[in-house]
Amino acid sequence: MVLRKKSVLKTLIPLAALAIVAPLASCGDSAGTEGGGGDKKTIGVSVADQKSLFYVAAVQGMEAEAKKRGYELKVTSANNNANQQVSQVNDLLTQQVGALIFISQDSTAAGAGVRAANQADVPVVAVDQRPESGDGELATYIATDSVKAAKDLCDWMFSQIGDSGEIAILHGVLGSTAEIQRTQGCEDSLKEHPNVKVVAEETANWDETEAFKATQNILSANPNLKAVFGESDAMALGAAKAAQQAGRSGMTFVGIDGFPTMFAGIEAGLTQATMAQQPYKMGEIAVDNAISIMEGKGDGIAKEQYQDTVLITKDNVATEDVKTFYGPDASVDQ
């Protein structure tokens, strides 16, 4: 059974108490037409960062759809700083954007931004991360079904190691939607594979370097380790590189994202599988939904819109096009 570390959550909880203190301009029906007084109708976008390939691709999808539809985007990046993101959301709202597309740094801190948008009558389209229940009203939530993705991926990984043996798990940012759901999905798979034992868990915060260092320690303490489930591609790549440096061959490393770098890793035999997400498409959907809502046509939009993932292994990595998932600028050479 997976025993998730919960201590990091203590650092996140105080963020839920953050309040938006700057005064809000009136952002009612007029925001749905001009948005900030500009010549174009405007959508605000608040993104956790613009370093992650997932978020870069999502914003590119948003930009492409907005340009096609004649809408302006105001994009802010919080550089993985939850406090900064709360401030940026507040700034967007004072500019009277017609809708807010929100990719939050973490699900707890997101509540303050959603509540502020609700108070300003600005609809919120959440992407990837879901603000915690009770923290405000979302127009819709667009994301990967991370529970299913992790369940299917762990099922595949366990089959590769003969449905028995020792594995390690590298967690993303504790308390984030993706971390919670991907942990749950692998736990569901573990229940069906009682001979697979989790002997080590570390939090690497979606980061390749952190995963590399964590896996070095895991490998030293667990000479019989067969596989590592990285809850993101970056962490899976970091783990695989640590094993390569340590001369530990024959292990299985899997992740979730479908990054171009992971496609390259699978082609090279460094890693073995990923569940490819569709961030570019999610960005397009987010803007399409925001425009529909601003134009008074959003009644038919589902509250939850989960996008499928595709299992990428050595068997299909050469035939699946990474551009399908990460947009026209994506390349396995990235």
Rank of each mutant, 00 (worst) to 15 (best):
K5T: 05
G265S: 09
S133R: 14
H193P: 02
A19I: 06
Y71W: 13
T144Y: 00
C186K: 01
F102H: 15
S159R: 11
K191G: 08
Y71D: 05
N79F: 03
E63Q: 15
V2W: 10
A57P: 11
G98F: 08
N205W: 12
T319D: 12
K6V: 12
F259K: 09
R182K: 07
V147H: 09
D333W: 13
V287D: 03
D299I: 00
A25I: 00
A234D: 14
G111D: 04
L18D: 11
Q84D: 13
Q160W: 02
I301S: 08
A234M: 07
L18Y: 04
A99Q: 01
S146Y: 11
G70I: 02
K241V: 02
A48N: 12
G70K: 09
G111A: 08
T144L: 10
G327F: 13
T183M: 07
N205V: 11
G269P: 06
D288C: 03
G36H: 07
S87F: 09
A117I: 03
I301H: 05
L170W: 14
G265A: 07
N316I: 09
A234W: 02
F263G: 06
A48I: 01
V198A: 06
V198I: 11
Y306H: 12
P131L: 06
P123F: 03
S331E: 06
S104D: 04
E295C: 06
A116T: 02
K197R: 08
V127M: 10
T274K: 01
V127S: 07
K213N: 13
V97F: 01
R115W: 00
K74G: 00
D188H: 02
D121Q: 14
G172W: 08
F325R: 01
F229S: 00
E63D: 12
A99H: 04
D128G: 07
G111N: 13
L73W: 01
Q84T: 14
H171R: 10
G35E: 10
S164M: 07
K74E: 07
Q334C: 09
A57W: 08
G113M: 00
A214C: 03
N79A: 11
A66V: 07
G35D: 01
A31K: 08
D288K: 15
V125L: 06
S77H: 03
K297Q: 13
N81Q: 09
V122W: 02
D106M: 06
S77Y: 06
I266V: 06
G258F: 15
P279E: 11
S159F: 06
K148F: 02
K51R: 15
T42N: 04
I285C: 09
A57S: 15
D91M: 02
G98E: 00
A31H: 04
L153Q: 03
S331Y: 04
K197F: 01
Q119Y: 00
G172A: 13
L100I: 00
S176R: 11
G98W: 04
